[in-house]
Design a protein around this nucleic acid. Structure first.
Lengths: 210, 210
DNA sequence: AATTAATTGTTGCTTTTGCAACTTTTATCG
DNA sequence: CGATAAAAGTTGCAAAAGCAACAATTAATT
């Protein structure tokens, strides 16, 4: 049930005690339901217990951008967005969350101190991971050409998957969103990379040849 | 001495006690000195007491990119970079830091619990702020045209400076880096925005007219 | 105050990218 | 299983952006 990084190193019994002390409660959402609107102004701390959700921005012109994908064990809260934008957390499949007041997390009472310490450590690590992945995305977005964005992204993937035969973990359509480039232009560049023998790819399966 | 957000809400005496419990020590660096190399692998937690520094990446081709600017009161540590890149923290002027083991921050002993709680709260807020500013940059970088990047950036600035007469807080040259676009192309677009009467600007002084 | 360095501003040309409008292939669902 | 939807793959054309090479200002330094 609670077997994800956020709770690593904490006994299940202690997790339950803590959550109960925090007055935490569970909620279930169907696919496409809105879990949270006005993300930046919540005082709650959220954990995804199962399912998946997207932190989504709706632009004035009706298009939407996925700012972040949330998986089982991921956290979200006021730290998930900028102060002005209309960000929503939307379930991308049936999703269960648990939530409690952020303040409870911070202000330790006397009980369960050790478990509480560990939890905060884990939260810090989660945020640090998030910072790392934002950093990564910024480095990729900072590349000037589509080609360079792709190559940099492939590099990161290759390091993570520890192989030169990488599999893109989402659709190519989503990849073009992630890289913030036009999908067809990205496809064209993918073809060029194949023709220049820098990669050999079919769909989301890519072999890096350099 | 310790009057910055990281220590807000904590008595100076308590700060000193905590830092002493953490076996924290101070270091001074001259302008351009390397404060930390191999950022992602440090187990220390750093706070800038005075001065300024840059988190810098050196690319294979010899160019360097400033990933983040650090000011008085800012923190850095393993959470400041991606896992693979060679990141350095370089003093951009004479700088004093204080540092201690990250573990000491997390594992609370019995004493000074309240101050320690508050400190961790502040660290969480710092990280959250950082996430917010990364989010902001990502949202800007995600815009497709230079024009839209500029407008989005001006919007953020306008909200922060609470005025439509904004002042860009660094050189236009640095702005083009921040937006990851060619400087001359950015200048051209700035001119277009003026001609289209969306802004009226001279150098870094910009009046937003919409 | 004079010189040097840095920043700002400009422009023609070329390359890259986005857009639109398709076809083909692969998934999904009643 | 067949129908419908989603994703992948293509292409011509127009618009945007990068590059390079300057000139003009403004700031910094001795």
């Amino acid at each position: 049930m609670y077997d994800f990084p956020l709770f690593v190193g904490i006994e299940e019994a202690d997790i339950k005690k803590l959550l109960s002390e925090f007055n935490a409660y569970n909620m279930k959402y169907k696919k496409d339901a809105t879990i949270l609107s006005n993300v930046s102004r919540t005082s709650q701390f959220y954990i995804i217990l199962s399912g998946k959700a997207n932190v989504t921005r709706y632009n004035f012109n009706g298009t939407k951008t996925i700012m972040e994908k949330l998986d089982k064990g991921d956290i979200f809260g006021s730290f998930s967005g900028t102060s002005d934008d209309d960000l929503y957390v939307i379930a991308s499949e049936d999703t269960e969350i648990i939530t409690f007041e952020y303040n409870k997390l911070i202000n330790r009472s006397g009980r369960n101190i050790e478990a509480h310490n560990k939890l905060i450590d884990n939260v810090l690590n989660k945020l640090a991971d998030k910072l790392t992945s934002y950093n990564e995305r910024i480095e990729i977005l900072t590349e000037k050409t589509i080609r360079d964005k792709l190559l940099k992204y492939f590099n990161y993937l290759s390091k993570k998957q520890i192989t030169k035969n990488i599999i893109i973990p989402f659709t190519l359509s989503d990849l073009s969103d992630y890289l913030a480039v036009d999908r067809s232009a990205m496809m064209r560049e993918l073809k060029n990379l194949n023709e220049d023998s820098l990669i050999s790819s079919k769909g989301r399966y890519i072999n890096i040849k350099y």
